[in-house]
Nucleic acid binder design. Structure first.
Length: 287
DNA sequence: CGAGTGCCCTGACAGC
DNA sequence: TGCTGTCAGGGCACTC
């Protein structure tokens, strides 16, 4: 693989520990949710590996370069016209330079001890990968049952499942006919099942089409993501619901712009209000 | 500990 | 024309 020869980066909390990457070899490129994970290995460890059991073996875990591109981050082998934030020189690699461009500076690039995500609480508490085997209906239902938050806010926390952001949350909730502000634990089993399936469908389709470009997002090859044209709900407030024709509504849930169909996506009642309603509708009272 | 709020940062856009 | 204000959003710090 490649070796990080030099890092030119602004100093700040969003680039903590970066200097530790200098001279280390990038062993692999993996991903958890929206975080890119690049395990590193010191040059000495691959030019002259120490025998197991030596003192240096204690930190055999080594370091890990963690990259989150935020909203507007772009990783590219070509120099950006503006907003260059970081340059990774990859000695002997092809390409030999990676540019990190980030107009709004929401991204972060840092080095942590491998697997030690205490500095990244969201990553530390990250739920299962949405397209992986660990993301089962049962596990999803159990996670949702633990939260009284609006289901959309809970999805955005990354705890019930990894990788669902604002756009795909709206899309999956629309597809599953779940109201974004329904308390997570109030969802019926059929709704949980539908939402589980919708998250998988939406993310699989979005990956297939290389994502959604609203503004700056580009693939590593500089192309826009084509999922934009597939959006049913996100950004379509005022437009007719593709299912029933009712105008879609925009609101704010969990501090984020939210789009839903007021007819297809009925709000699930909390346990307490559902109980009240049941009691009220029961002739002669509950007892 | 879970839930809610404010903040970061800058480009795009509306309004005057 | 050019200024000011508002909005967008992923994750984190802080408060209750």
């Amino acid at each position: 693989m490649l070796a990080v020869e030099r890092v030119d980066a602004p100093i700040g909390p969003k680039t903590a520990g970066l200097e530790r990457a200098i001279g280390q070899r990038i062993e692999a490129v993996t991903r958890r949710g929206k975080f890119l994970l690049l395990p590193l290995r010191p040059a000495s460890a691959w030019t002259s590996p120490l025998p197991a059991g030596t003192a240096a073996d204690a930190d055999a875990g080594g370091d890990e370069l963690v990259v989150h591109l935020g909203m507007t981050g772009v990783l590219s082998p070509r120099p950006p016209v503006a907003h260059l934030r970081l340059l990774l020189r990859l000695d002997g690699g092809r390409p030999d330079v990676l540019y990190v461009q980030d107009a709004r500076r929401f991204g972060r690039v840092l080095v942590v001890p491998r697997g030690d995500y205490r500095a990244l609480p969201t990553l530390a508490a990250m739920g299962p990968e949405p397209l992986g085997d660990a993301f089962t209906v049962t596990a999803f239902a159990a996670a949702l049952a633990r939260s009284a938050q609006p289901v959309k806010a809970f999805l955005l926390s990354q705890r019930p499942v990894a990788g669902v952001g604002n756009i795909y949350a709206d899309e999956a909730l629309w597809r599953a006919r779940v109201h974004p502000a329904s308390p997570a634990r109030a969802l019926s089993r059929p709704k949980v099942r539908a939402l589980h399936a919708a998250i998988r469908e939406v993310l699989a389709a979005a990956v297939e089409l290389q994502g959604t470009t609203l503004y700056d997002y580009r693939t590593v090859n500089g192309e826009v993501g084509a999922y934009l044209e597939k959006l049913d709900a996100y950004g379509h407030d005022g437009d007719p619901c593709p299912r029933c024709g009712t105008p879609l509504v925009r609101s704010v849930v969990g501090q984020r712009g939210t789009h839903h169909c007021p007819r297809c996506q009925r709000r699930a009642r909390s346990d307490a209000s559902a109980r009240r309603r049941r009691d009220r509708s029961m002739p002669g009272g509950a007892r």
